[in-house]
Every structure is written in structure tokens, then in C-alpha cells.
Design a protein around this nucleic acid. Sequence first.
DNA 1: GGAGGTTAGTAACATATGTTACCAACCTTT
DNA 2: AAAGGTTGGTAACATATGTTACTAACCTCC
Lengths: 156, 156
Amino acid sequence: MSAEKARDDEDAANKRAFVLDQFAPYRIVRLGHAMSGALAQAYREENLTIPEWRVLAVAAQADALAARDVVAKTPMDKMTVSRAIASLEAKGFARRAASAEDRRLQMVSLTQTGRALFNRVATRALAFEKSFLENLNADERALFIELLAKIEESVL
Amino acid sequence: MSAEKARDDEDAANKRAFVLDQFAPYRIVRLGHAMSGALAQAYREENLTIPEWRVLAVAAQADALAARDVVAKTPMDKMTVSRAIASLEAKGFARRAASAEDRRLQMVSLTQTGRALFNRVATRALAFEKSFLENLNADERALFIELLAKIEESVL
DNA sequence: GGAGGTTAGTAACATATGTTACCAACCTTT
DNA sequence: AAAGGTTGGTAACATATGTTACTAACCTCC
């Protein structure tokens, strides 16, 4: 068997075994990328970056929380969160205050305008979510969420 | 009703409506992020960046293809692809040659070492895919892939 | 067969993101 | 209560990524 032939056989085997378009992790990453892009519309108009929006979203669900909690709840780096909070504060959407119990902690809370901003963006985000799940019926949607949860369990 | 009270009511409504952890697009983005991280192991040891690995993967599935084709098949910027190809070439994993028909095109193909590298990484990548789908049984896996395809349809 | 437009690729620039190193505040343990 | 270690946050740096602008090659269509 020629070297050429051997290579072709090996390739054929790999083509069956590894096709990028059928590689689940890649598809999820790609889908996530598309999501980010589509969602960006919802906050681009509000001049928010992705990290800012994420901080806004988690902060909206608590009275006040420490930056480290944002890090825990979010796939973002310490530094990214730190910057996002600083920026939200500069824009008047969030406040920072040192915690009384542990003065290392920077407690973050949203201002009135911050909450209003969150509400605007959340509305649009939910509309988007709805539109992209439109291809699925109610059962499929529930199922998808369920399967997603199982996968998250083994990865996150 | 006080302004305070009104705000709380509004917040309560929004908490029900928008919880980041239950927001599907966010969950997918987060999962994708985790995937990337986990997969990184597979090519970090080979000194590959994510874009390089992606180019390798699509190039492995064709004899030769133009850079623009890589862009089309991949959620990557023109420039990112250009750089990844240049780097793969510098490392001896890929070759570039101007197309005879259209001299604007840079046809990319893998070298022997490039293919060998791809095979090594692909093997590890598939093992990872398997491990992360482990929480699902065969039916669930098939179902998940099917639902994923439907969602891709409406987003990609 | 050139003028006007388009496409592929890259260079130069701007921005975003991650990494390392650091300080201050804490929390142990003795 | 002081030494040794840990944690939260940030600054300074390095790297990665996207954007803009350009060139070369192509493709009409008049």
C-alpha cells in the first residue's frame, strides 16, 4: 500500500469519526457565539458591553452582592467583573459600598436608572429568547431545557 | 402606593420574568464557554490556539480550501482565520498556495505533520465529547442533537 | 477594453480580555 | 497578639480579538 493510499484511508476513518459540524461541543460553542451576537443588539443600543449586562442581570436579582459573587455566578474573570462594575458605576447604573462586616468586599447594588435599564434590556432579551425557541413546540422546549440541565451538570 | 413599593413590585415581576440562570441563551453561551475551556486541554498541550485548531479541523476535511471557506464554516473573523493559517504554516502544519483559477485565493492544505496533529487532537476531542454527553442515554443524546439542529436553524 | 463595483486577504490600529503581581483586609493557629 | 496563610479587588502588563482601511485580483456592463 502506498503512503498516499495509507493517508487516504486514515483520512477516511477520521472523516467518519470527526466532522466538525457534527461535533457537539463545537456546535454549542458556535451557537453560543451566534446568541451573543444576536443578543448584542439588545444592549448595544443601550451602550452596554456583555460583561456590563451580565453584572446588571445578576445585580438585579439581589439587593446587593459582592463582586466575588458575580464572579461565582458568571463565566467571567475577576478582572472583567471588576471593570464592568467600575464602568456601571461611572455611568450611574450601579453603586459600590464597602461591606460593614468584611471591608474587603465591595457590595454592588443598582441605582434606579440601573434598574430601569435592566428592565428595558431584559424585556428585549426575553423577546429574543422566545423568538429563537420558536422552532420548538412547548414539549420540545421543556425537553431541551431538561437535557441542557443534565449536560450542565457534567460540565459546569 | 409609595415609590419604594412600586419599585419592589416591578422588581418582583421582573424576577419572575428574567432570571439569568434560567435564560436559555445565557445558559448556552455559558455552556459554550465551559466547553471551550475543557477542550482547550486537548490542544493546549499541542500548543494550538482555538482558531488554529478550528482551521486544522476544517482543513482536515478537504484536500485544500480557501481561507474564505474557513470563514464561512466557522464563527471566526476574517482576520482571525488569516492569522491562524499564517501561524499553522509557520509551524509546518499547513501549506498555502495561490489558486490557479483565482489568484486572490489562498488555498490551504495540511502537511503530513498537520494531519498527524489533527488526528491526535481529534481523538482527544471525541473522548471529551463522549465524556460530557455521558449524563445522557442514547435516546436523550439523539434527541438533544435533533433539538440543537432545530435551534441552529433559527439562529445560524 | 476600461470604469465601477466586488471579493480575498492582510496590515495597522483600537479594543477587549486574560494573567501576573500586588496590597489590604481578613482568618487561623500558636 | 503576631506570624503565616487566604481572599477580594485592582493595577500593570501581555495577549487576543475585532475594525478599518488598503491592495491586488477579479467580474461586470457599457
